[in-house]
Structure formats: structure tokens, C-alpha cells
Design a protein around this nucleic acid. Sequence first.
DNA 1: CCGTTATGGATAGTGACACTCGCCGCTATC
DNA 2: GATAGCGGCGAGTGTCACTATCCATAACGG
Lengths: 224, 224
Amino acid sequence: MRIGELSRRTGVPVATIKYYVREGLLPAGRLTSPNQAAYDDTHEHRLRLIRALLDVGGLSVSSIRDVLEAVDDRTQPVHEVLGWAAKGILGPAGVAADPAAAAARDRVAGLIERRGWQVAPESPPAEALAEALAALDRVGHGVFVDAVLEDYADAAEDVARVDLEYVGRHGSVEDMVESVVVGTVLGEAVLAALRRLAHVHASARRYGAAAVPPAADGSGAHSS
Amino acid sequence: MRIGELSRRTGVPVATIKYYVREGLLPAGRLTSPNQAAYDDTHEHRLRLIRALLDVGGLSVSSIRDVLEAVDDRTQPVHEVLGWAAKGILGPAGVAADPAAAAARDRVAGLIERRGWQVAPESPPAEALAEALAALDRVGHGVFVDAVLEDYADAAEDVARVDLEYVGRHGSVEDMVESVVVGTVLGEAVLAALRRLAHVHASARRYGAAAVPPAADGSGAHSS
DNA sequence: CCGTTATGGATAGTGACACTCGCCGCTATC
DNA sequence: GATAGCGGCGAGTGTCACTATCCATAACGG
């Protein structure tokens, strides 16, 4: 397969594929002549993965490069791979120093301890959580945390159990790291969408009984 | 309070505050002279909200403008507000037409029906879900969906129940829409972080028994 | 009273990001 | 042997979230 067909199969423009190769997201094709290269199924699969991470997962190109390096590195322990991606989605952040942040970090440490989670409080997900709790506090919704944190944690545990089961049942170690990545990133998108769906349903049931036909107008549908 | 103090209190640069005012995210201060304006607590609160949605929620400035308009518009029914924000996080997207997308939409419709959810299958969250499922399918992890969808949906229902209870118990209708926004957007970040935390824990327990001291090296800790 | 600093308002510029274009010389295909 | 496609490269594009500069005016300190 040459680049044109790869492009046609995946719907990704040729120029973009070349760009991904330059950026190190996609390995170059096997050269058959000085200016002719062949691509195969692995390239196609990798390309689809890149697009999924980019479009649905919302990762940046540079995060994806890091992630894919981890996927390719077979020596990477699975649970190590799980910590990274937060930084790609949340900004560089860099450990805030205000009172809200300090309180949030304590709160996270308490939660981890109470749950008996074997996680370092300095790990990226823990800091991401602290960041989110601090933000909630700063906008005056600190109570939200009191009201929901434990229930959220229960739900997170349920979900994580299911995820791990899937990854574990998925056969070869080669694919495992990719399963973890896919499950983490795309699973997040799935869960978020489900939560909003459940919100809409629960809200419609509780407040407006009036049917909610939201596709009728375009008021909020188009972007920019 | 003048703009300088507002800046000092929130940590947001003066130039950035001016930018938010220009962009319509933040109302202008009350003019006391042709070139002097006063800001109050509502401005401060709004500014913190903007930063939270931006930094933690990952919304774009234009999404935030839309969201805040809804917050300010008291006539907005609550369950109507719940549909929007997906477009800010996921791209404009625009309804894919390939087989994976079609299958995913069917699947979503089936799920909604099976759950008895009162949600239109064309609503933004439903389409976001279909998008995510389609992406999963395209990267060859369609099985993931079979394995976890129902459990995810259970978890989402649990979480949504808790969320709605919080919003309902939160008093005045004025604050309700804001609670919904905050709960939806920041709650998503909280839930995602908790899920990753639970992943790391469950994974450490199941695979590497070796303690996982992740803060020791800086290999993945600092960004870019 | 006056120099310094801060302010509102407007315009222009910045850096990061994810592409996208154009060019060159070569190759595959009809 | 014309035409289309190719690999590789550098440069350009549009968007986004700021950021910098400028001006005339206002507040503030001595």
C-alpha cells in the first residue's frame, strides 16, 4: 500500500500523514525505492489510533507521541503507563500554591488513605484531582465535593474494576498496553458522554416533563 | 475594587481580564469616570469561574461565552443547559458517515431505549457517545464496548443521581444553572481523575506488586 | 502642584498548535 | 512517453489564548 491508499482508507489527507511521520507519531513506510515507500496494516491501525486519541481523546500531538512511545516500549509496566495522560489534557499546571490547592491536596491524600488506594499522592492523577477540587473550591462550590466525592469514588472504583477486567482478558501482553491507553482515553470520553446522557434523562424526569426535543433548533448546535 | 486589585486577588493578569471583557466573558466594570471603572465580588466570582472552566474543564473561550450566557439567562430550563458543552470539548465533528459511525449510532439508540432514558438520540451527548464508540470500533477495540458499556451506564446513572441531588438541594434557582454547569464540567474532571486513580490502584494490586514509587524520577513528571 | 503609577479602551503582535501547500526530482502506470 | 503519484523538505495558514503597546486621563504621594 502506498500513501495515497492509506489516505483513502483512513480519510486522513496525505499531507497530514506526512506530518505525523515527521512528528514521529507514525513510523515511516518501508522504502522500496529512494522515493517510494510501502505502508501496511500496522500503519493503518496506528493512524486510526492517532486520530482517535486526537479527535475523541483530545490529546495533543506531543502527548500522543509520548503515549505511543510507551505503547511501543514493551518493557513499560502497565500500571506505569496509566499515570501519564493527565498532563496532555490538563495544562502543564505546575502545582499551585494557594490555600485552596493545599486543602485540596490534603483532601486527596485523605481520600487515598481512607480508600486504601496504593497510589502516591504526588502521582499525576492525584494532582489532577487536587487541581479539580481546588478549582471547585475557588468558585464557591466546595460543598459539591462534600456532597459527591465518596459516591464518585465508588463509581470510579466500579468502572476501574470493569476496565481492568477487560484489559486482563485481552490476551497478549503486546496489545495490553494499547488496550490500557485506549481504555483510559477513549473510555473517558465514553463515560463522560454517558454521564451527560444520564444527566439529561434524570433532569428531564425531575424538572421539565415537557419532552425535550433538542434537535429542532440550531441555536447551540453549530460551533464558533 | 479596580482592575489591578481584581487581578491581584485572582492571579489573572490585567491584560487577560481586559481580554475577557472584550470577548464578552466578563461584564465590564461600572464606570465611575470616563476611564475608571469599579469591579465587585460578582466580577471576581465570574472570573474564577472562567478560569476553572478554562484550565480544569478545558473549554474554549467561545464555549465559555455560550455557557455563561446560559447561566445569565434565567429563563433557560435546566435540562436544556445540560446538552451543550460537549461541542466545546470534542471538536465541531459534524456527524460522520462511515459504517462505524452508523453502527455506533444504532448502538446508542439501543442503549437509550433499553435504559428508558428520555433523551433524543440526536442530542449532543448522544452524538458524542456515538462518536466515541465509533472511534473505539475503528481502532479495533469494538469488544471493549461490549465488555463495559452496560457497567459504564450503571456508573453514569449512579453519578448522575448524585449530581442531580446536589443541584436540587442547592437552593435558589439563580444559582442552580451555575451549579449544573460547574457540576457537569468540573465534575467531569473530578470523575476522570478518580477513575485514573482507581486504575493505578487496581493495576498496582493486580500486576506490579512492587510498591510503585512514581515520584522518584522525573521521567514523565514534568511537561514538555 | 507635579511626577509617578494605574486605568480604560483600542489595535497590533506573539507563540503554540495542527495542519496545509508547494516544490523538486524521481517512479509507476497506462 | 505523457500523466499521475510519490518521498522529503521548507515554508505558509488559520485559530486560539493571550500579551504588549499606545493614548489620554485619573488617582496617589510628597
